[in-house]
Design a protein around this nucleic acid. Structure first.
Lengths: 186, 186
DNA sequence: CTCCTGTGGCTAAGGTTGTTAGCCATACGC
DNA sequence: GCGTATGGCTAACAACCTTAGCCACAGGAG
């Protein structure tokens, strides 16, 4: 019987893919193991239980989201940058609902937790958007929280099916980006 | 052995209180039953399983939130109304994290689901805020979604401990309300 | 007052899932 | 080529949700 060639990253990637398919709460050790061609106790050789698995998926997701944001912001500034970032986040949440869900409700454990670094990279991208506007440095942290809250809230509500008239959601999204752009330009 | 005097509402109220204390995911049938002085199978005489329990907690929470909003908006308009509503939502989410968490990720089952009515009442309150501004009727739905996304995102991030410098969160909140007020005034 | 019925408790039991313990074979370093 | 750590496995346990089926109490009918 050949070995399956697993390691923590492969397991986390499998969990992320599975979460996108069946929803994060339905990612079970047994199901993931089956998907990886292995029995569930074997996963514990690579991952320290379900909580650790969620943590790793969160790191993976935030890293991917950070990459997507960085790509989207290349060579853009001001309103273009804002729109591109918003679209990137929304697109990520829609295309990878399981991964995105994992980014909520996770705690940083150690001071050198890679989750903190991945999160910081995402924040850096959002801060780069603000650089294109004339925001009072004292208000930067507030504006950052505005962007986070708004994008995150929109993503969560859309993922949960919280908006009724599904057809208008795209319109609402662009309207919302415009609203923020106007507000940030003062 | 005297009867415990339970009914669906009492069970849901107990679940809500328990959720606020230990977190919604940690509300287990056994724990709730113990809290109510009963064994877990007895709960099934009043409630149709854990999913139904979550549903009922969501209805209860949305109803309470709707009441809080209605109270907060009494006799206020424009920026005062906006600030009062925002504070009410945030206060509710902070004071009742378990209840608030239950309002996310719930589905309306029947057309006469009380959840839909409770949610509609909350939306009505938000719509009432917009009445105090000069919003193009065609944009009302977008502005509503702005408010929902922003308030909800802020509440989720704050509840998840997503903001680092905890001391500035109040400042960010008022800054954010001002930002929206300015934007809505055009 | 007595009986009858339905409601709301209970114990017992089964299925699923997370997790640990302990075994054994494989792949790699010397 | 051999030893050793690694990465599979089976077995087993605990927690939880849920169902089945029993029994006692409460309240109304006669």
């Amino acid at each position: 019987m050949p070995r399956a060639g697993l390691d923590p990253d492969v397991v986390a990637a499998g969990a992320a893919a599975l979460a996108d398919e069946v929803g994060l709460p339905n990612v079970t050790m047994g199901l993931l193991a089956e998907r990886l061609g292995v029995r569930s106790p074997s996963l514990y050789k690579h991952v320290d239980g379900l909580a650790d698995l969620h943590h790793r998926v969160a790191v993976l997701a935030l890293t991917e989201l950070g990459d997507a944001l960085r790509d989207a912001l290349q060579g853009r500034a001001g309103r273009d940058a804002l729109a591109a970032a918003a679209t990137a986040i929304r697109g990520f949440a829609v295309a990878h609902p399981g991964r995105y869900a994992a980014t909520v409700r996770v705690d940083v454990h150690a001071p050198d937790d890679p989750l903190a670094a991945a999160g910081a990279r995402v924040l850096d991208s959002l801060a780069a958007i603000l650089a294109g506007y004339d925001v009072d440095p004292a208000d930067t942290v507030h504006a950052l929280r505005l962007l986070r809250s708004l994008f995150h809230g929109f993503a969560v509500l859309e993922a949960a099916g919280g908006f009724q008239l599904a057809t208008d959601v795209d319109d609402s999204f662009t309207w919302l980006v415009e609203f923020v752009d106007r507000g940030l330009r003062g």
